[in-house]
Amino acid sequence: MDASVTGAKAESVSSESVPESVSSDSVPSDSVISLRGVRAELGSRPVLRGIDLTVRRGEVVALLGANGSGKSTAVRTVIGQVPVSAGEVELFGTPQRRFRDWARIGYVPQRTTAAGGVPATVTEIVSSGRLSRTRFGVFRKADREAVRHALDLVGMADRARDNVDALSGGQHQRVLIARALAAEPELLIMDEPMAGVDLASQEVLAQTLKDQVAADTTVLLVLHELGPLEPLIDRAVVLRDGCVQHDGPPPRALGQHALPGHDHVHPHAPAGAEPIRTGLLS
């Protein structure tokens, strides 16, 4: 399945074998994220096999690729959740190991739920995103206002006092994004924010992201497909088997690929193989 999905993606990318590297040799001074020759293993399996990735201030970069191509791992090396076995990771020009200024980063992990083992309100969850801006976790008026503002941005202000257990999948994702926005970050890192999100929430999220981009926030997104975010994205980096396969303008979806919920048919699949049906049309 992995290979065929990548195959379908590669088909829509004009050059299949030559990676279109934008600039990985010289790192500009305004780079917010910089990965150079990064390798990482999970267990003993190499997941990243020397990737270069630069995100400059104000850019919106999408990290694409099939399941298992290493896109989540790449993002997790950026925030120090996966150890790097070779290469360098820099955040705002500081080596990742020495980076301490976490309030500048808003992180949206890949989750289907914001709930824990005990009931919690939307406000309580979003407040934990503000902790990085407080001293010893003491909330002042400005902090409470920032939390309220973050909820406004994702259109959840009217659910502020509700238990997150009562929310839909898309609303959970909006809460997780509000939590990341509560610290008023300069860099947003999102791991599959559109997974399991209903259409209405997808549009709200696209609008939220648009506002953030307009306010000069840098964004690195892991996506399975571009979807409604496509017009926002400046650059797409496509990973395949732990290597950068494409780095440049977002691949334009062509023909049937332009349809939401198209089937992925691998061009080299044995004749008569079932197409991988992922979408609404199947």
Binding site: G80, Y107, P109, A114, G116, G117, S128, S132
Partner: peptide, 12 residues
């Protein structure tokens, strides 16, 4: 306790 990975990225 709610989200350990997220907490780490907030610098806790």
């Amino acid at each position: 306790s709610q989200d350990e990975e997220f907490a780490r990225v907030t610098g806790l």
